[in-house]
Simulated assay, not measured.
Amino acid sequence: MLRAGIVGLPNVGKSTLFNALVANAKADAANFPFCTIEPNVGVVAVPDERLEALAKISNSEQIVPTRVEFVDIAGLVKGASKGEGLGNQFLANIREVDAIVHVVRCFDDDDIIHVSGSVDPVRDIEVINLELALSDLAQVDRRMERTRKQARTSKDAQLELGALEKLSAGLNEGKSARQINLTEEEAESVTVLGLLSSKPIIYAANVSENDLASGNEWVEQVRQVASAENAQVVVVSAQVESELVELSQEERADFLESLGVKEGGLKSLISATYQLLGLRTFLTTGPKETRAWTIHTGMTAPQAAGTIHSDFERGFIRAETVAYNALVENGSMNAAKEKGLVRSEGKDYVVQEGDVMLFRFNV
């Protein structure tokens, strides 16, 4: 299961958002810096309305969604790359995740301390991104010293050195590693470094309940920063989400309607994170269960079968495949077959998002 790390300055709402994400998680959320020291981990179901529709068609006994893991990482501060505020420990936690959800404070509240004394999302983003880049730069420069010696006799080292020199130049210019153009081979040569600023990122603009429907000026500032990085922004209210957890479904709907929204942004954040991780979903359905399965983009039918059981991949014969929309529109697998919409796909077939699949295999 791939992991997304929730990061940001202290007191921006990270732990409150995390608690809402995992519903019954026990992450501390308090009004002082470094409340969270050890990272909290929670496994979250990815919302997928397709499962309900398929379950009705198959009269399934249960529904099993796919999941993604979120890690609540302590707040970073200026100087973290030099160890300020237990920065080395927190940066190491970020190194272990696959993607970053950067929570940015876009609300004003005199009762909640801001470490810099005022709300300024652009400044806050720059603080975090700079600390990640400085940590990467130190690591790149150390690696370059060793690689230069090896490059005298090794072509692989020469390739890596070229990538490191590009990274060093870009990081010194204030860019993140993900903004630096490397060839596929160059990127592969430095994968082992696990550079923090190379990780894909989503900005979660955390607003008050009054700004959830329309956003505010601070949200627009976050969008401008994200646009320059080709990153995504999700508007969410940790305050609203923390209240929704305590309500019934009917009460939730009424509360959100009173705010002029259909949701608090949490579903969008989970789905966007799932996509950011380069994940896709195929579906299986039957009387026992309807289930979503996670694969990486580009996986073939046998590889997808292997996510269910390794025997399915080893003994793969074919996959009976139908697009989700085609199946739902026709109401049953038999009706879809009669119209020629169910295909028999072989070992080279690349699984598409939303494929409903039945695997045939030899034991």
Results as ranks from 00 to 15, higher is better:
14 K>R: 10
253 A>P: 00
222 V>F: 06
162 G>S: 15
172 N>T: 09
94 I>G: 00
325 N>M: 09
119 V>R: 02
113 I>L: 13
6 I>G: 01
3 R>I: 12
357 M>S: 10
31 N>T: 06
280 R>Q: 13
31 N>P: 05
360 R>A: 06
306 G>M: 06
98 D>Q: 12
49 E>G: 05
25 A>Y: 07
172 N>C: 01
244 L>N: 04
79 G>D: 01
115 V>A: 09
10 P>H: 06
310 S>I: 06
212 L>H: 08
63 I>L: 03
294 T>A: 02
207 V>F: 03
313 E>Q: 12
230 N>R: 13
253 A>K: 15
241 E>F: 05
20 A>G: 14
175 K>C: 03
157 A>G: 09
232 Q>S: 13
328 V>S: 04
224 Q>F: 03
157 A>P: 02
178 R>K: 13
253 A>L: 15
8 G>P: 04
130 L>Q: 10
194 G>W: 04
170 G>M: 12
41 V>A: 09
74 A>N: 03
145 E>Q: 08
16 T>A: 14
297 T>Y: 13
179 Q>M: 09
241 E>L: 09
166 K>F: 10
324 Y>E: 11
313 E>P: 09
26 K>Q: 13
135 S>I: 04
357 M>F: 07
54 L>K: 04
275 Q>S: 09
89 Q>A: 15
265 G>S: 04
147 T>C: 13
139 Q>N: 12
336 A>L: 07
123 R>A: 08
256 L>H: 05
219 V>Q: 01
286 G>Q: 11
243 E>N: 12
42 G>D: 06
252 R>G: 05
265 G>Y: 02
213 A>D: 11
311 D>M: 03
115 V>D: 04
259 L>V: 08
4 A>Y: 00
150 Q>W: 10
347 K>Q: 04
25 A>W: 07
331 G>W: 06
317 I>K: 01
112 I>G: 10
128 I>E: 02
93 N>G: 00
27 A>I: 05
335 A>V: 07
12 V>R: 07
296 H>R: 15
257 E>C: 01
261 V>L: 02
47 P>V: 00
39 P>S: 10
154 S>I: 05
91 L>H: 00
355 D>M: 08
145 E>P: 00
171 L>P: 03
251 E>Y: 00
135 S>A: 15
195 L>C: 03
326 A>S: 15
251 E>D: 15
167 L>W: 05
330 N>K: 10
357 M>T: 10
128 I>Q: 02
188 E>F: 01
247 L>P: 05
89 Q>H: 09
213 A>P: 01
250 E>G: 05
221 Q>M: 13
342 V>F: 09
154 S>N: 14
218 W>F: 15
324 Y>M: 11
4 A>C: 14
158 Q>P: 14
183 T>F: 12
313 E>C: 09
244 L>V: 06
205 A>H: 04
283 L>A: 05
315 G>E: 10
154 S>K: 05
133 A>E: 08
339 K>W: 01
230 N>H: 06
328 V>R: 05
24 N>C: 08
315 G>I: 10
343 R>M: 07
137 L>H: 06
176 S>T: 14
83 G>K: 03
177 A>G: 11
220 E>I: 01
243 E>M: 11
123 R>L: 10
88 N>E: 07
27 A>Y: 04
215 G>P: 14
95 R>L: 12
312 F>P: 00
1 M>H: 13
120 D>C: 11
304 A>E: 07
205 A>S: 12
